[in-house]
């Protein structure tokens, strides 16, 4: 029996492809928020599972890197586990769940709660890179709109939200203006995470495999969420704290417990929640369990 992944180049992609992706990444970093076309390859996972993110990770990963993979904030969900194992096998990199220890973080739908540092790279998986797509179906036209900075139409979408719901009801993929020049889709991260993109010291790279686009936000770049003067941008808040770690300021997931209406709210960032619990922070549910034991 041979080793399961023998015969592949380091980190799966061939070196020419990696060069091509790195060139696209450099261009993307030079023009913050601009969508750079690239020759997206077939990857051994389906479109929509992070083919764009995986290609960027494969192109910049080296043996000294420490990789963390996030799926919806968690390290232990299917997509995160498979992509982590993919690079463990094909690039022999160390992996971690700790965002502070990672040099490269590939993420789907969340930015870690813990602040990121310089020298770190955050790679996003992007399903739809074009923020204007739902409003203007012609690619030719959207490219012109980006080229000439004609972004009034995006504002119309927010107008429609307020007209229909009384407030800006867009909660994820909330459009942002990068460096006051390019309109950018921040991928389906909750708008809760939008402020974290602003002036972040880490490098943020975005890869859309099916749509064959790469874009980037370099360190310390302005990222402004669109809004109206009389309806300013705001992030989600919860009346509850996390039921496991008691955090009142993190992004919470609602978990249904039974069919009797039982539910609890827990941090979506699993590592953040666990490390808080280890530090002795307890949520309502943990306290109840402790009392039951006493």
């Amino acid at each position: 029996m041979c080793k399961p992944y023998s015969g592949y180049n380091y980190a799966y992609l061939d070196e020419q492809t990696k060069r091509m992706i790195r060139r696209a990444l450099l261009k993307a970093l030079a023009i913050p928020g601009y969508q750079v076309p690239f020759g997206s390859r077939e990857m051994p996972l389906p479109y929509g599972w992070g083919t764009g993110g995986v290609q960027i990770t494969a192109a910049i990963l080296g043996p000294k890197d420490v990789l963390k993979v996030i799926d919806q904030g968690a390290d232990d969900t299917t997509n995160a586990v498979s992509i982590r194992r993919f690079f463990e096998n094909l690039a022999q990199v160390k992996t971690t769940e700790d965002p502070r220890a990672a040099t490269l973080i590939q993420t789907r739908h969340r930015i870690p709660e813990m602040p990121l540092q310089e020298q770190q790279v955050l790679v996003y998986q992007v399903p739809q890179p074009e923020p204007l797509r739902s409003l203007e179906s012609s690619e030719q036209e959207t490219r012109k709109m980006h080229g000439y900075s004609e972004y009034g139409l995006m504002q119309v979408r927010l107008y429609e939200d307020i007209a229909r719901f009384g407030h800006i009801a867009t909660t994820y993929g909330y459009p942002v203006m990068v460096n006051e020049r390019y309109l950018m889709s921040p991928t389906p991260i909750p708008k809760f995470d939008n402020p974290k993109m602003h002036l972040n010291p880490c490098i943020q790279l975005f890869g859309a495999g099916r749509e064959k686009r790469i874009y980037a936000v370099p360190p310390y770049t302005q990222v402004r969420s669109l809004d109206f003067d009389d309806h300013p941008f705001s992030i989600q808040t919860w009346p509850q704290a996390c039921d496991l770690c008691g955090d009142q300021h993190s992004y919470l997931d609602e978990v249904v417990l039974d069919d009797q209406g039982g539910r609890m709210f827990v941090c979506s960032d699993s590592f953040h929640c666990q490390s808080r619990q280890q530090q002795g922070h307890l949520g309502a549910r943990q306290r109840q369990e402790e009392q039951a034991h006493d």
């Binding site: 009034g152 139409l153 119309v156 429609e160 109206f228 309806h231």
Partner: peptide, 15 residues
């Protein structure tokens, strides 16, 4: 939204 589009296109940002 249809009527307001032109206003927003030239920078109106007050709903």
């Amino acid at each position: 939204g249809n009527v307001g589009e032109r206003l927003m296109a030239v920078g109106a940002r007050h709903y």
